[in-house]
Write a protein that binds this DNA or RNA. Sequence first.
RNA 1: GCGGGUAUAGUGUAGUGGUUAACACGUCUGGUUGUGGCCCAGAAGAUCGUGGGUUCAAAUCCCACUACUCGCCCCA
Length: 425
Amino acid sequence: MSAKKSLQRPKGMQDVLPEDRRYWDFVIHAATDLAQRYGFERVDVPIIEDTELFARGVGTASDVFVQKEMYTIEEPDGSSIALRPEFTAGVMRAHIQNGMSSWPQPVKIFTMGPIFRRERPQAGRFRQHSQFDAEILGETDPAADLEVMMLAMNLYRDLGYQGLTFQLNSTGCPHCRPGYLELLTAYLSTYAGKLAPIDNERLEKNPLRVLDSKEPGMDELLASAPHIVDHLCEDCAAHFADLRLMLDNMEQSYTINFRLVRGLDYYTKTVFEVWAQGIGAQAAVCGGGRYDGLAEAIGGPSIPGVGFGSGIERIVMGLKQQGIEPPESAKPIALVAHFGGATKIAAVQLCYRLREAGIGTRLAFARERRSLKSQMREANRSEVKFALIIGESELEEGFVAVRPLTGGDQARVPLSEIVDWVKNG
RNA sequence: GCGGGUAUAGUGUAGUGGUUAACACGUCUGGUUGUGGCCCAGAAGAUCGUGGGUUCAAAUCCCACUACUCGCCCCA
């Protein structure tokens, strides 16, 4: 690895080579297919939005976030735009701008593409990564929560994942969360002496975050901590109960994880993740939940929403880890070999005839005459079924020598019949 | 921003002070005029991450830097 500095890809970003690409195609096809089966429609939103849109979506800590975690671009007119660090804000913006509230309700959309966060990379976390994202906008029915949850779960099931678990919690709403935070803070304060410095800091700034602390000993320390699901308001409690009832009736198991939290105010009610076998330090293969406060937070009308995002790189890593083999990517069927000159002209023509007929074909390139051995080796490496050889004698007589690479006898086929011959072979 | 690990051809590795840095895979060429895989022969490909230091002598020891990687912070 001695590539020159300038020829290195940027930190935290990666090249997807053909060998890996088939995993991606596998995931993307499965996700698209499944989302459409659930009645979601594909949309695409820009990779860049106004920095302000994302900043508002992030709430109080936005200054730090904008500087440290977002890739921003200053425009000549002084405005600032940013590479999207998530999908939801852009999707919500698109909803408002395109008047989706007057579409048939609710609006069910999915999208996928790259997102950018200037984090320190580690296993399963990159500065550029791709997400599959699905959202239901304009619906408060917990059946919508169930729907995005099941879409996520069934995606991983379709892909062949084993050992999947739902982690589920409710994060309440602006009515009931403050009361819970008081209880939690009171509880944690009695342990202040035993908390790690980092957790004491969290206790000050964002007590919920103490719950997902990775410091040792937290299990015991939190053993009798208050759970938010025991302190929900009537509306949130009913929503949660309804969702659980549906999950139970579908015999879909889940773990209520009182330590599963979201840091931002606009998140409401349902929070969920799907966990698979760990990818480095990351167990979650998707994260999602309800964000009934987001639309207003970014300066729009009140629009309830629920959705999830799932990192494609992470899904691919999981597939490899679990030994799941995606289908082979398409290989050409034929390679056309020749000896230059007039035979090359004929070979080029044949090559395009085959391609027009829908037959994947590779042409042997050669500025001058090239040995047939070398062309045959290329055919073998390309894993084609047939080498179609046009030499001087074949050209003269209007034939093609067809050599099956998978065994069997070589044939002489009239040039006029070769397309059908390959199609049927 | 903080900590651990690593750094030798395209890839994976060997080489812990002493002549032209080794092996495997991959790539290319050839093994009689126009036939792949297996096999055989050969070739190309590395200023041993960068810079400094120790030494008669450094890929090898020391220091710094950089990059990569794993973890922490953060995680919309």
